[in-house]
Design a protein around this nucleic acid. Structure first.
Lengths: 179, 179, 179, 179
DNA sequence: CATGAATGAGCCTTCATTCAT
DNA sequence: AATGAATGAAGGCTCATTCAT
């Protein structure tokens, strides 16, 4: 038990370091030795916990995409509350710049990593459809348009956060516009 | 004059080749020698026309972002027609996969290239605001929310193009939802 | 006593595992962790029993060269029977592929390990000379030529074992040819 | 023409440097940067001419095995003269230590490189058989035994060159013994 | 004794960029 | 302008060896 915990804690430390470095340099410009330094461990150890840099990239990218928050909201909420939950969590997750950078980078590489592509597909096809059904009662084209507008709008807000509009206000206006 | 034309034609050839290669490998995983082969121009010559790979990346990324189409529509159209124009051109530009890949990749690297970041800033702040004024008569928070919803929705549609919904239908529904 | 036995048994287990791994990968391409896995002993422990990988290589290489069998035959036999004994034991030792691989690999590295080089020198100079004296009564150049022909022929047979010729037949013909 | 020549000369230079370095360190312990230094070129250039270190190893190993000299003799000579030709050329080829080291190393890795294994197979099976037919008029088991004795003896002589016996004498005695 | 986590030197290879022709 | 040979700085990864437990 303690063994597994230690292992898990070490992996976590590496992933955290990797997130900081990746968010600054991008996945492919970030050399592994910087990640090692940032996590305070040796370069070799990274390859003890992750079989390759790609595996580490994958782990970080998965955490950076919004699928997890969508799933959580889907479990907890129904109807219009669901949309609010998603919006709130989305804005919260990407509030700090590190996550924001990682989000863009991760979207950028999703085509090159089958596992990521699948995650994006599930998010955009299945999860969004489910949200539509739970929030609007159907997944008609128009409801799906609303879903994309919601999601895309949040993405835009996050990518280029406007100065004078608080998250609260933005979310309220957004939900109002989407009806 | 002929000199300049020849120069321009060569540069264009390279950029075209670069777009094909970049869209397949991503900017940083695409080696210059592949671009050379793809455009039928020697590797050395690429550095005659572009001072560095970064300059080439910049040129390609600029063409891949949607600012140009926004500007064009802003010049040509007014009122609600403006939104339709943007939607139509947006969907057209990113209809083929190459452009779509480049769009994501370009967004992904925009933070690392000051010129790109500026372009994104102008697009999301100034151009979008101008569109809001011309289409809705004001740039109130709510109008801006609509702008982001429009833009983000188009992005989502393009990133993960749904099977059963034509561009026409999608655009019509989208504009209807946004009022 | 039991202590020493246990120690010896552990060392033996490691050497056996090492032989299997070395024969597959060659001495320098075989990572220690594979030897550990193959012998069912932890990587760290290997360095408890052997001060370095080189020491393990040395031990395996020594066992893989034919000096031991030469010495044994020299103790037991005289005259022409000695040659037959050598031939028989040689063919027997290198009957299985593992030993065959190790023989070649060991010859290949003998130059780089002083202890091995000495072993090869003793084998080719002293032991062979002794065999010549015991088998032919002298170590004249011609007798030594016969020795090398015997030895080299066995090596060739073993390296590239012909399909249609049994060990028995080969040995008989060989001894006949060498007179 | 001049282009190809330059290319060929550069490749040759690398191969020569590689042979020197490989003969000293063995194929796997010889780092590429030493080969570069020894050939007086940059490390990167080696990979311009050879797609990988393995390819370079292969080229060197092929030159270090005796197949070429066997083929040449087979073309030029008949009968007993053939054996003499082989013996002479063999002793000549492996007169200097570099070639001798490379011979052992190359034999040692032949199992790991399919192309080399094929070369060894052809040498030991087909070429040796052809020599037997041309020298003794048949490829009976006994003739093949003689072939292996010839070849193996030469190998032994070369691996552990005796001090007091000149090549000439050795060869004369050897041929006499083999009848 | 025993384990497996930790280290860091070093290796092969890639690739942007320069240069001689 | 044009070519492709040449350079060298990194980069990802392996692996022998050590160490804390």
């Amino acid at each position: 038990m303690s063994r597994r915990d230690a292992r898990e804690r070490a992996r976590e430390r590496i992933v955290r370091g990797a997130m900081r470095v990746f968010s600054r340099y991008g996945f492919f410009r970030a050399p592994v030795h910087l990640i090692a330094r940032e996590s305070g461990i040796s370069k070799g150890l990274i390859f003890w916990y992750f079989s390759s840099k790609d595996e580490l990239i994958l782990e970080v990218a998965r955490r950076s995409l919004p699928a997890d928050l969508l799933r959580k909201c889907l479990e907890e909420r129904q109807g219009r509350e669901l949309l609010e939950c998603i919006g709130r969590r989305y804005l919260e997750k990407y509030r700090d710049e590190e996550m924001r950078s990682l989000l863009i980078y991760s979207m950028g590489i999703s085509q090159a990593y089958p596992e990521l592509e699948e995650e994006v597909r599930v998010t955009c096809d299945e999860l969004l459809r489910e949200v539509a059904r739970k929030a609007y009662g159907d997944d008609s084209p128009k409801s799906m348009v609303r879903m994309r507008a919601l999601f895309g709008s949040l993405l835009c807000y996050v990518l280029r956060r406007p100065r004078n509009v608080s998250e609260e206000e933005y979310l309220r206006d957004l939900l109002e516009v989407l009806g």
